[in-house]
Write a protein that binds this DNA or RNA. Structure first.
Length: 800
RNA sequence: GGGGGAGUGUCGGAACUGGUAUACGAAGCGGACUUAAAAUCCGCUGCCCGAAAGGGAUUGAGGGUUCGAAUCCCUCCUCCCCCA
């Protein structure tokens, strides 16, 4: 027998990396847009990326074998804080840092064998890209979708800078530990709320995991209720929003945000305490912290009962939600109940559970369900549902309320007081106010010569950037120094991929209409709300601008699970990180990809296991060796008719299973099917040596394995002239005509097995079954019933 | 607090719409090859009773529906994730 060369993974991978990276676009008319969430260029791929891309590339190669024209791009989400932090820390310019990181990550991606269409590359920090962010901003500004308003921000007095929510840890700055203050600044917003209804309704159209849709529904948070006016002593009015107007008679106090504009008029002698409360309320989670309140001097009037009720300034009422004031019904709301107990406010039951009578003196918890009204004037005795409508009508007639739809979704705050982002193309003119930069003067370039001190926004200090002329009057004016949230960049990158070199438009509408939507999007669940809502919103805005026709950017979504080590998420602090480079160097890309796909189904978390990785490596070597056995000698031995039939059947079954599994992203079972098939071939080879049909079987195995392990299979295909262009096919008849195994049960317990020709009658199956000794023993004399599922199972039920 | 998901051998996991529970891989044990080891190949391997043939129980716990339940329904326990 000929000597089998050792499988040199390193050499094979080096040879094929270049060829994969240069992969050509197919011209099949059957397009498929396959997209992976592009990474932030932090400097190195982690296992999460590796998993994401292994899934994507395997699916891409499978689709190509099924003769689809696949669009498979890659890019980098290159603006963002880490680059700026690196600049503050080590003095490297964010651009240099970012571009170097991109280079490193790209080389890792190539090493993994990912066959991206690199000519589509998008890097969001390049002016060729962010120019169009600015262009969209101007279009949105024209239409009132981009606007500026006062908003609270987290301000660190130590760093003299604005902090994102995640940079505030327990009320302190993450970097310098100063106590964070709430400041009010003029901020830019995108009016995403104008699309709330459509964003909610169109979820129906999407083939997304139900849990992501639920998260989005909650995030959008549509609630129908009533806006009610409570009059206050001194002829002022406080408005509240409630989804439970049926509990109005039970409202025994009100609570308002310490930031409420009316607070000064209501607090009276308590203003000092309110100030204290405001400071306390800084950037902490309202749900987690203890509830505090200050009773104000003025009292409100419950419009239903006419009673005077106290008003509290409370730290759990947010100005950003509803009206910044709420009516409190302690008997029927958990939070109101706790607060009322703490401050000894009366509790009054106005809703009874059906068939029960609650007693406020004995209640230990609020009753928050709906029920039957009591103590509610004319509405007593009504069920909650009806009472909600009737009370709303009653208030409308009285002029003290109106029905309203409220949203949890807020407008998207896009201002960042940061350098490393897209400059907002607006000029502040002392005479003309806010003026848009002229479209033909885009891009407003980010100046490179700035200082990174960690204090304030470097852009605001860049004199030659800030000082400009007003586009309207030509007088001296100052540029906007806020930059755009990086979620703007990721809201349309998938459109730029389709036409990445276009310098006269963000993309060609003709191309976008032909290739959108993305047929399959793959990424992490952590983007279930933010990114995936912003991108949907952006697509709808672009549609309304006439740039695309599609309503939704991502038709199908796959959210992959996390990669764990020792039961925990890989993280530096736990010291359980497995490095991508190490794994690629030690075992090679094929092994790494195969393990990632094999160890767990994509949606589930994946436990990294070094031993199991070795198993995948072993399997690849087995394929290599068997292929060489098959092709380096001539077939010498025939196999029996029986074995030949079985081989054909197993081959067909394997092709069918692998194809179905790959189409459904069930890579783990696809790979196990190939392994089973390989074991079967190996069994025949062990028995007969190079047998008739060995080569054909190995060809099939190699083709099936190609999407997941492209390097070794490409090498073998070249060596032994195997075409990897198309997916193997099988004949249905081979599967249908094969003999079936029937399970024989007695009273639901397995008592025997039977091989039959397909289509054997029930009577005959029964006759044969009863001949089996164990079956006869357990079935006994009295057979009560027979259940027969054709080609599958016969259950014999006995006794009385 | 709200929302979602998962509990199956020693481990990762399989079981299509209710029809052989534990495929495939790992680990373990035994054997072949070898001076030896690695690599490779072959075989065995969830639990209890039994020498064996065989039988019994078993999918986090308990109950239910069904000829038949890991899968459907109810109650409970544990773990994880996301959002706030």
């Amino acid at each position: 027998m000929a000597e089998i060369p050792e499988c040199d993974f390193k050499k094979i991978e080096e040879k094929w990396v270049g060829k994969f990276a240069a992969s050509k676009k197919s011209d099949s008319p059957d397009k498929f847009y396959l997209l992976e969430m592009f990474p932030y260029p932090s400097g190195a791929l982690h296992m999460g990326h590796m998993r994401n891309y292994s899934i994507g590339d395997t699916y891409k190669r499978f689709l190509e074998m099924k003769e689809k024209s696949v669009i498979y791009p890659m890019g980098y989400d290159a603006f963002g804080l880490p680059a700026e932090n690196a600049a503050i820390k080590s003095g490297i310019h964010p651009k240099k840092w970012t571009m170097k990181n991109i280079e490193k990550m790209m080389s890792q991606q190539k090493k993994m064998g990912l066959s991206y269409q690199w000519d589509r590359l998008v890097i969001t920090c390049e002016k060729e890209y962010y120019k169009w962010n600015q262009w969209f901003f101007l279009k949105m500004y024209e239409r009132g979708i981009a606007y500026k308003k006062d908003a609270p921000i987290n301000w660190c007095p130590g760093c003299q800078t604005v902090l994102a929510n995640e940079q505030v840890v327990a009320g302190k700055c993450w970097r310098c530990n100063s106590t964070v203050e709430i400041k009010h600044l003029k901020q830019w917003f995108f009016k995403i709320t104008a699309y709330a209804e459509e964003l909610l309704a169109d979820l129906e159209k999407l083939d997304w995991p139900e849990k992501v849709k639920i998260q989005q529904r909650n995030w959008i948070g549509k609630s129908e209720g009533v806006r009610i006016k409570f009059s206050v002593e001194g002829e002022r009015v406080l408005e509240v929003f409630t989804t439970r107007p049926d509990t109005l008679w039970g409202a025994t106090y009100m609570a308002i945000s310490p930031h409420h504009p009316e607070i000064g008029n209501l607090a009276g002698s308590k203003i000092g305490e309110v100030e204290k409360l405001r400071r306390l309320a800084v950037s902490q989670n309202p749900e987690e912290k203890e509830k505090f309140g200050v009773e104000l001097d003025k009292k409100a009037v419950n419009p239903a009962t006419g009673e005077k009720i106290p008003i509290y300034a409370a730290n759990f009422v947010l100005m950003e939600y509803g009206t910044g004031a709420i009516m409190c019904v302690p008997a029927h709301d958990k939070r109101d109940f706790e607060f009322a107990k703490k401050y000894k406010i009366p509790i009054r039951v106005v809703i009874n559970p059906p068939g029960k009578n609650l007693d406020e003196k004995k209640m230990e918890n609020a009753y928050t369900e709906e029920g039957i009204l009591k103590n509610s004037g004319n509405f007593s005795g009504m069920p909650s549902g009806k009472a909600k409508r009737e009370i709303a009508r009653f208030l409308e007639q009285k002029g003290t309320g109106k029905t309203e739809i409220n949203w949890h979704l807020r407008d998207w705050l896009v201002s960042r007081q940061r350098y490393w982002g897209t400059p907002i193309p607006i000029v502040n003119c002392p005479r003309c106010g806010l003026v848009a930069v002229n479209e033909r003067n885009l891009p407003v370039e980010l100046p490179e010569n700035v200082k990174f001190t960690g204090k304030g926004n470097p852009l605001a200090e860049a004199e030659e950037f800030v000082n400009t002329k007003c586009p309207k009057c030509g007088g001296p004016a100052k540029r906007e120094t806020d930059t755009l949230d990086t979620f703007v960049d990721s809201s349309w990158y998938f459109l730029r991929y389709l036409d990445s070199k276009n310098d006269s438009a963000p993309f060609s509408s003709e191309i976008a209409n032909r290739l959108m939507p993305v047929d399959q999007y793959i990424g992490g669940i952590e983007h279930a709300t933010m990114h995936l809502i912003y991108a949907r919103f952006f697509t709808k805005v672009l549609r309304d601008l006439g740039l695309v026709k599609t309503d939704e950017p991502f038709k199908k979504l796959l959210c992959q699970g996390m990669v764990l080590k020792d039961g925990a998420k890989m993280s530096k602090s736990l010291g359980n990180v497995v490095s991508v480079n190490e794994i690629l160097d030690k075992f090679g890309a094929d092994t790494a990809r195969l393990f990632i796909l094999f160890a767990a189904p994509p949606e589930r978390d994946l436990e990294w296991n070094a031993e199991s990785v070795r198993g995948c490596h072993r399997f690849l070597k087995k394929i290599w060796n068997l292929a060489h056995h098959a092709f380096s000698t001539q077939p010498v031995a025939g196999i029996s008719e029986e074995e030949k039939k079985e081989l054909h059947f197993v081959t067909a079954k394997t092709i069918r299973n692998v194809e179905n599994d790959l189409a459904r992203f069930e890579f783990n079972t696809a790979i196990s099917a190939i392994q089973e098939f390989t074991n079967f071939i190996q069994g025949l080879f062990g028995k007969h040596g190079n047998f008739d049909g060995f080569r054909e079987a190995m060809k099939t195995a190699i083709k099936l394995l190609y999407p997941a392990a492209p390097f070794i299979t490409s090498e073998l295909s070249e060596k032994f002239s195997i075409s990897l262009k198309t997916f193997p096919e099988y004949r249905k008849e081979v599967l249908e005509s094969h003999e079936k195994e029937i399970i024989i049960q007695v009273n639901g317990k397995l008592r025997g097995k039977l091989k039959i020709k397909p289509g054997t009658s029930e009577d005959e199956v029964f006759r044969k079954a009863i001949e089996i000794e164990t079956v006869r023993k357990f079935a006994g004399e009295k057979i009560r019933k027979k259940i027969y599922v054709p080609n599958k199972i016969l259950n014999i039920v006995t006794g009385g």
